[in-house]
């Protein structure tokens, strides 16, 4: 290594949080746990229950990552690396759930198609979907 690498010499992660900081983060985490527990007994309409649960969990995760894991005082690049995990997760979840939740519509389309052209056509059951018939619209 050349001696021009002094750029690495900046003092990161040396920050020492006070005892009261850790205790108040812990207190906030406890409070949010009580909140999420209480909300689970409330009859929230539709999918608001899961939205509330994931919302509160995300705030808790933010507190743990920021203060317990010291990301607040860590190198910005490490923050980026950490956040990249959530980006890849969003891509993974997004495409998979889009596939799962729209398959029904595709099967309906194929079924209708089969009803119109009953004889000789292979469209119809979901199993034909696997054989690569896209329905050709």
């Amino acid at each position: 290594m050349s001696s021009s690498h002094t750029a690495h010499g900046h003092e990161e992660g040396e920050h020492i949080s006070s005892m009261s900081t850790y205790l108040s983060i812990f207190g906030a985490l406890l409070g949010l746990t009580v909140l999420t527990f209480a909300v689970s007994y409330a009859e929230l309409p539709g999918s608001w229950s899961i939205v509330a649960a994931i919302g509160v969990a995300s705030v808790k995760a933010f507190l743990v990552a920021g203060w317990f894991m010291h990301l607040k005082y860590d190198a910005r690049f490490n923050v980026l690396v950490f956040l990249s995990a959530f980006w890849f997760m969003a891509v993974f979840f997004g495409f998979t759930l889009t596939d799962l939740t729209t398959r029904g519509a595709l099967f309906d389309y194929l079924d209708n198609h089969a009803a119109h052209a009953e004889a000789g056509k292979k469209y119809g059951s979901p199993s034909t979907f696997k054989e690569g018939h896209s329905g050709g619209h």
Partner: peptide, 25 residues
């Protein structure tokens, strides 16, 4: 410090597991 980061991640996973498995309606 790295053991701590590992441990906090285990906590982080549980923070999501708990509401999704036990609480969500």
């Amino acid at each position: 410090e790295n053991t701590g980061l590992y441990w906090h991640l285990v906590d982080l996973i549980w923070i999501f597991l708990f509401p999704l498995l036990y609480l969500v309606r």
